[in-house]
Structures are given as structure tokens and as C-alpha cells.
Amino acid sequence: FLPSKLYGDLRKKFDEIELAPILILVDASRILDYKESSEELSYIESRQINDAEVLAINKVDLVSETQLSAVRKMVQRINPNARLIETSGKTGTGLNELSNIVLRETHGGVPPISETVVKDFAKSVTKMGERGEQYTIKVKKDLSGSDLKNLLRDLLKGIAEKMLNAGGKINHIKAFLGNESSFLKASLVRLDQEVDFTGEIKGLSSGSIRRITIDAFGRGLPDDFLYNLMDSTIQEVAPKYGVKFEEQ
């Protein structure tokens, strides 16, 4: 989404609404891919950074101080007026400051944006590929918590590898297994990084049935092609763990 347009629309509809500052999260590990490959940031990402009142450089635990310095310089070139904070969901770095900004500070306003900017942004969005699918998995043999993590890891890594081999770019691939009371969430933004896990399922016994959602976001690949990549990866991985996927 285009933050400045969203905030502008909210202001028009709700005169008395109080908004937090426009805060954009920057993935420190992923944004370095552009710098290292000399590839330009997409219009979507650079425009969102430009709209920010606060830029939260996230996942600082995954980069060195030298790399972090490069990220700071990169985003400050795009938006020299934004306040920078550094955060990590894994270590807790900067989360109190982030919470205070969202809960206690208010939006200072941004200049009006032109229709040209809105149209250019919408055009860029159409180039993004996104596919999300829900499945029911039926477990044919007992699986430990470690087995379930390996299952999700193999799914995400397999999809990521196929996306890159097809000439696409990875934005984010994630999977959610279980429900609100007992779940395992897996997230991957780069093939050369480890899959990040949240939550825990201690194991599933033979005959168990659970729901799983898989989402793939990327550039350069149409939605239907992403679906085919997901489906072929499932067909390869499922037999290894004795599970059957049924699309909902």
C-alpha cells in the first residue's frame, strides 16, 4: 500500500481521527541484496521508504555493523528526514521504542501526492506476484516437533529455490500450521538464510488432521506460476514426511 495515500484518505473520511506516525519496516538483511547486486530498489519499496516519518531497520541481529551502516546510508539517501530506529523481533532490540512511537506519538502530516504517483505505484504493484493457498494435511505416521519444522523448512526452501531458478525474486515465503492455541509459523526471505520459526507444536500422531496456509510473495513471476511452484514442491516434500495435502 501507499502510506501517504492511505493516511490522506483516512483524514478525509474521519476529521477527528488521531493517527500514529507513518512507520515503515525495513528488512536489513534483505535490502542489502539490492546494494550487493547493484539492482535498484523497486518503485514500491523506495516510495514506501520515502513516505515514512519513522524507518525501523529490522532484523539487525542478522547483519554486521558494517552492513547495518550501509543500510542506514541507503535509506537515508531515499528519505533523509525520517527518524531511524533499529529493531529485532528475535532479540527485542528497539521494541520498546517502537511501541512508544505507535502508542504515544502522532502523525505529523505529509505533503499531498499527485495522481501520477498513485498511478505509478499501482502499476508497480501489478508486477508483484502473490499466491496464498490453504490446505488440510493428514498425517500418516507420527511426527515430532522437529519433523514438523523440517517439513515446513523443506517446503519453503523448495519454493524459494524454484522461484529463483525461474528467474523470479523472493520477497517473502511463509507457512502457518495449526490454529491459534497451537501453531508453528515459518518464514523465509532469502534462500541463503535459515527459516525463522515462531510458535511450537510438540508433535502430531498418525491420523491427525491440521490446516496449513502457505503464502509466496515475489517479483517477476505471475500468480498462476507461483501456484504451480508451490504445488510441485508439495508433491516432492509430502511423501518424505508421510503427509497428504488436500487443497481447501
Rank of each mutant, 00 (worst) to 15 (best):
S114N: 00
G178V: 14
L184C: 10
I101K: 02
N150P: 06
G109M: 03
L152D: 11
L151R: 00
K149W: 09
F176T: 15
H172R: 04
R104W: 12
L143D: 08
R131A: 15
K149Q: 14
V118A: 15
P111L: 01
K127M: 15
Y135M: 07
K127R: 07
S99G: 04
N179V: 09
I170M: 01
E130W: 07
A186C: 05
S124V: 08
K169Q: 13
V125C: 12
K157H: 13
G109E: 12
N165M: 14
R104V: 10
A122Y: 10
T126Q: 15
K127E: 13
A122Q: 06
I137N: 02
L184Q: 01
G167M: 02
I173P: 08
E105F: 01
S181G: 08
T136F: 09
I137Y: 12
D120F: 03
K138Q: 11
S187M: 02
D142I: 10
A175R: 00
D120Q: 07
G168K: 10
D142P: 06
L103A: 02
E133V: 14
L164V: 08
P112M: 05
A186T: 03
S114A: 00
V102K: 01
V117R: 02
D120M: 08
K138V: 10
P111Q: 02
S144K: 00
E161T: 02
T136S: 15
L164Q: 11
D120L: 11
G167I: 03
D120C: 04
K149R: 13
K174Y: 10
R153A: 12
G178M: 15
E133G: 01
K169G: 06
K141G: 04
S99I: 08
A122H: 12
G129P: 15
S144M: 01
E180T: 11
R153C: 07
G167V: 05
V139M: 07
K149V: 09
K174N: 13
P111T: 13
R104F: 12
V139C: 04
N100L: 14
F121S: 14
